[in-house]
Each structure stands twice: as C-alpha cells, then as structure tokens.
C-alpha cells in the first residue's frame, strides 16, 4: 500500500476515534492523568535518591531525568498511536472478532493497531518534551541540530521496537488459549526497564534486556546519544535490533493468521 493511502486511513481512524472519545469526556484525558502520575512519581523517586548520592552507575541527575523523559515520551507516543489498538488483539482472536478485520481490504494488523488512537495521551507527549528540555538544560552540553535529529530518529526506531514487542506478545494467543501471564510479564519488564537505565544491567541480564526482550535499550540508547556517550557500535546495534524485530513481527503475525481458527464462525 502507498504511504499516502496509509496516512489517509490513519487520519480517518483518528477522526472516528475522536468522535467516539468525545462521548466519554470524563475519561478523555485518563491516560494523561494516570501515566502523568506514574512518571511524576518516578521523578520524585529519583530526585530523592539523588539527594543522597551523586551518580547512579555513572549517570548524573540530569541524564537520569532525560532518561525518564525519553521513556515517558516513547510511552506517550505509544499510548497515542497504537497501544489501545494492539492490546485489543488477544480479545479479538479469542472471540473471533478478528474475522471483521481480515475480510476488509486493509492490512489487518495496520487497521487493528491504529483504530484506537488516543488523543487524550497527547498532553503527555508535551509534558515529556517539557521534562526533556528541562533535563537538557542541566546537562551543560552544546546541542546541535544534528543531536536533535539523531535523537528523534532513535526515538522513532525505539517506538517501532516498542510496537514490535507489543505485537509479538499479543500474537501468541493465536497459538495458545490463555496468554495473560505473558502480558503481565511484559508489564513487569517495562516497569523495571523504565526505572533502570540499560547500562546498569550486567551479564545474563544485559543479554536478556538488550537482545531477547530489548526493553533495556529503548530509552537508554536515545539518552546515551543525546548525552554523547553512545558508541557507533551501540548506534548500529539498536537500529539493527529494531529492523530485525520488525521483520520478525510481520512474519510472526502472518504465521499467526494462518493458525487463526475463527472461534465464532
């Protein structure tokens, strides 16, 4: 499909979702308040720790703040764009509702992912940018346009990787009846990796969070790039990981569709 057509479909889905959301004004900004409080608490936690220590694993207060802002930004964009669509996949597989998507002349994964965009998450994107700007001002580092472009590019790649991981874990229900434990595992790992920079993991845990479940690199790599501590190998590695996981995601999804039993029909 051509990109313009995809963008047109996204725009249409966004409009439809917005009109549906307006019917429930009270929970419209729900994600903003919920995730906003989560990241606020995280900021408080690290501020408290930094009041006692100078650095954590070589990261000073500003770098850590930038790390939290980056994770918050990736999470907010995820919430805005595809989170609510992707999390509905297991339910639709189980109920057979997926039939409606695979019979439409649109890529089923694309439709499922972007049909539930959440406008209420947008303020969280701006709040995250606010955290990033504040953290960057404390870094005493000359920021060039190249730094910003490189950082934005890496955030985009990590957003793709985040999407891949979400879809992979929600494709598993094609093969097993109940996969709620896998989703809980995802929740625990994300909570862990948004609190600890990947550089703190050592040995087997580094292997686990840099390769098998690469949540460890998602906010760490863009932060390292911005701070000027990312090596060329690290830069190339993170891009290769995102590409490899994307290729695997599409192949896995196709395999899943082949195993789909359409429970309701």
């Amino acid at each position: 499909m051509r990109i313009t057509r995809q963008l047109k479909i996204i725009y249409m889905l966004l409009k439809m979702k917005l009109s549906r959301n307006m019917a429930f004004r009270f929970s419209f900004f729900g994600v903003f308040f919920v995730d906003g409080s989560l990241f606020l608490i995280q900021l408080l936690m690290f501020s408290t720790i930094y009041s006692q220590v100078g650095s954590i694993g070589g990261w000073d207060r500003s770098q850590m703040l930038f790390f939290i802002g980056t994770f918050s930004l990736i999470n907010a964009l995820n919430m805005f764009l595809y989170f609510f669509g992707v999390i509905s996949i297991p339910g639709k597989i189980k109920s057979g509702e997926l039939d409606l998507y695979i019979t439409k002349p649109v890529n089923s994964l694309f439709h499922l992912s972007f049909e539930s965009m959440d406008i209420g998450s947008l303020p969280l994107v701006f709040a995250s940018i606010g955290i990033l700007v504040y953290a960057a001002s404390g870094m005493h580092k000359q920021i060039t346009i190249l730094t910003i472009i490189g950082y934005a590019f890496l955030v985009f790649m990590m957003l793709v990787l985040y999407y891949d991981m979400e879809v992979i874990l929600r494709t598993i229900p094609f093969f097993v009846i109940q996969a709620s434990s896998i989703e809980r595992l995802e929740g625990e790992v994300i909570t862990l990796c948004m609190k600890i920079p990947g550089t703190l993991f050592k040995g087997a845990f580094k292997f686990l969070f840099y390769l098998v479940l690469p949540y460890g690199i998602m906010a760490t790599v863009p932060t390292q790039f911005f701070a000027g501590t990312l090596t060329l190998v690290g830069f190339v590695y993170s891009i290769l990981i995102a590409i490899a996981f994307t290729a695997f995601t599409f192949a896995f999804w196709k395999l899943g569709l082949k195993c789909y039993k359409s429970a309701s029909s």
Partner: peptide, 26 residues
C-alpha cells in the same frame, strides 16, 4: 495465576538489587 503473581514479586527485589547495587558500588 497465583504462582505467576508470586514470581513477579521478584521484579521489585531485582529492581532494588540492580539500582542499589550501582549506588552502593561507590
């Protein structure tokens, strides 16, 4: 469900182990 929720209590202890391990190194 019970067993998995118990296993996941490790995440908080693991978080503390990694985070405070880095802090107490100095």
């Amino acid at each position: 469900d019970t067993i998995t929720s118990i296993i996941f209590t490790i995440s908080k202890v693991f978080l503390a182990y990694v985070l405070w391990g880095a802090i107490f190194g100095k």
